[in-house]
Nucleic acid binder design. Structure first.
Lengths: 130, 130
DNA sequence: CAATACATTAGAATCGTTCTAAACTGATAT
DNA sequence: ATATCAGTTTAGAACGATTCTAATGTATTG
């Protein structure tokens, strides 16, 4: 509790009631993949009614501070990942579920990037049966 | 022209005026990445005013028949790819541009998929500087 | 060439997300 | 403590991509 406030302050984020609740859920030590909607539902279950606008604001604030990663998985909605380390994912479209791949993977045979462009990062998405 | 109508019929698609125009643009031999909006703009420039609803319908019809691939690149809009072979991409967020990677790449070090799941396909997205 | 099943269309509806502007609250200085 | 003020929350409006609706049009079949 004290440490979450401290954690937010360390990241130049005022520890408001709402941000403390959201941060303590997101950063409880278990990596998560959330959308605004799934987070809102989870918070409702925890009896913390936080407006959708605040949820969007907070996810973006955390993202801006590098506390969350944005995932481009699906054109329907934006996914945020609490694991900001470079890593890859399994994705099950059927279950709309993401699973972290935390082992080291290598991609070989990569061609040269186009002129004047540098490779920033390589993202591997492993699609599971439908 | 004759062959495009034939091509559409072969794919159980009635060769309407609009579908012929869109197909002859999309499948002219040069692979393309389009969104409903970029396709609409291109068609307007070609003086072919086709309603947005038809563009969406047609893209989805072509997708259903396996003539287009859907790319999950970005949560803002849906990208369709005329290259339906298994391949990978460079992506420049800054330019909002995709570039095909047609060489063979290998991903090594992949962990086992979760129980009862099979790997369907592996997609590699190479992000270019910002 | 009539019948009909399928397509196209404008505009309305939908849905995720962002914006607005008014009310609120944490930090700071007094 | 308290007033001040910048930063935050919120409901609801607005937005933009996409889908739906239902009326009109057209390719196919007999």
């Amino acid at each position: 509790m004290k440490d979450i406030k401290h954690f937010l302050r360390q990241n130049s984020l005022r520890p408001t009631k709402q941000r403390v609740i959201i941060a303590s859920y997101l950063f409880d030590g278990v990596n998560k993949h959330v959308t605004a909607e799934t987070l809102s539902n989870k918070l409702l279950k925890m009896k913390a009614g936080i407006s959708l606008a605040t949820i969007y604001n907070t996810l973006h604030d955390f993202y801006e501070k590098g506390l969350l990663k944005k995932l481009m998985i699906n054109s329907d909605r934006i996914y945020f990942d609490t694991n900001t380390e470079h890593h890859h994912h399994f994705y099950s479209k059927k279950d709309q579920k993401l699973i972290d791949i935390n082992v080291d993977m290598k991609v070989s045979g990569l061609p040269k990037p186009p002129k004047n462009k540098k490779i920033n990062k390589i993202e591997v998405l492993v699609h599971l049966d439908n």
